[in-house]
Design a protein around this nucleic acid. Structure first.
Lengths: 241, 241
DNA sequence: GAGATGGTTCGGTTACGATCGAAGTATGAA
DNA sequence: TTCATACTTCGATCGTAACCGAACCATCTC
């Protein structure tokens, strides 16, 4: 009966609402202080501190002392992938938050998924890259074509530099809001950084959603066109338990 | 702060030790009764009943009444994939069970992962299929080559029949013990069934581990050879009957 | 029908863990 | 030095949920 790894431990780590809020906040990709995380979780600093200690002991988080601040981040991208996987599953079972809140639409449009672009725009970008022949699909996997390397090089992505990292270049990541794949991996990260650098988009405070400037949005949509037309059906998440 | 799907709910479902044991037991792929699951979880029938109700309400389980029995199974293979993902993560962080127990080696050698073969043998099978050119890899994805279809057809796998199902033919599934991919999807399922049908292997009671007969083992190893040599640690004598 | 087996519901107990106030430590600023 | 900020540790409270005994419902066998 008692076999294999202990999923209950990490399940219970994620299972507490306050800790889940902390992890969700850190899915934004940037390092946050204990105070910020306490606010995000809706608990006092003492409580948050206890939670952070547990999460760190569990290997989900790492902290970095900097002066009198302690910055927390997800331990690595495997944690991000794990969480996004659980989010996708939760969304598919209708485990949505009770009050969808006003930020929900912005989240669905464009958000950060640990370090790359997700949401409607993330899915569109990958779809467009595939249509253009820049990325080829094989089962669940993705790979960059020579043409794609050239194409992305022309907009300022140094693909050969990315290859030298140990991290996979292309990975697909299942999007919980769209229920379709978007682009992760070092290439996904590089593309999002590129948008930030160009001033097309920026992060928003206290949210995973990404804000596109009007000009940036225009350019993004032009760079990643879709043949099919944009009004594809949105697969609905049914929310009955 | 409160954004996205509610990961805490499913986290807490998995986070309880009794429920985690139930889910782990069901990863064996076959339907189990409430009484069996109570024994697997180490709790009384009443307690197990309450847990099963929660898991079902959470969409992780389905039950099927048959006579005076109630058979529970994982709701679908997405649940299996989710759990295997969490197991892989837990194993990578060293969240192993306290007492590794005598069954551990057998589990690492060959076990069932919802409905397909995992463990050392599962990884070997996929590696061999790739070496033989039967399956091609593209990033994280897998696809069956024409040659592979012929090859598998010769050992009794009806690939074209499998294609008609909605389920993907080839999927890679990360193995928590080997930390490498093994073959999932309808093809993975069909291969394992094939081994059972031929009498090469059988399930063991109360465990996810798979027992190979001496003859079956010989044939399996011959069918899925590895170039690299097999002498690199052929560990694990199994202790189960 | 009676009896046995499989499973659920109810009620009450118990234990664990989330929470916060208050006090304590570390780092930076004045 | 003194004060302020950032965070941790301690101690106590409190709620919730896991747990089991007992009773209850359902299905099969005889």
């Amino acid at each position: 009966m008692k076999e294999g790894p202990d999923i209950a431990q990490i399940g219970s780590l994620i299972g507490d609402p306050a800790r889940a809020n902390i992890l969700t906040a850190l899915m934004g990709g940037r390092a946050l202080t204990a105070t910020e995380l306490a606010a995000a979780a809706g608990v006092t600093l003492q409580t948050a501190s206890a939670h952070l200690a547990k999460l760190e002991a569990g290997g989900l988080l790492t902290q970095r002392k900097q002066g009198r601040h302690r910055y927390f981040t997800l331990a690595d991208d495997r944690v991000g992938k794990l969480l996004e996987g659980i989010m996708g599953f939760a969304a598919s079972r209708g485990h949505l938050r009770h009050r969808p809140g006003p930020k929900e639409p912005a989240l669905r449009k464009a958000r950060i998924c640990y370090d790359h672009l997700a949401g409607d725009y993330g899915v569109r970008m990958l779809d467009s890259l595939i249509e253009a022949g820049s990325i080829s699909v094989m089962g669940e996997g993705l790979s960059l074509t020579p043409g794609g390397e050239k194409h992305l090089g022309s907009i300022g992505i140094d693909v050969s530099g990315l290859r030298s990292s140990r991290r996979p270049l292309c990975r697909s990541c299942l999007d919980w809001s769209e229920r379709r794949a978007h682009l992760a991996g070092s290439l996904g990260k590089a593309l999002l950084s590129n948008f930030f650098d160009k001033g097309w988009a920026r992060r928003t405070e206290n949210s995973r959603s990404i804000f596109f400037t009007p000009e940036g949005e225009r350019r993004f949509l032009a760079l990643f066109p879709l043949e099919l037309g944009e009004d594809i059906e949105q697969p609905q998440l049914d929310d009955t338990p």
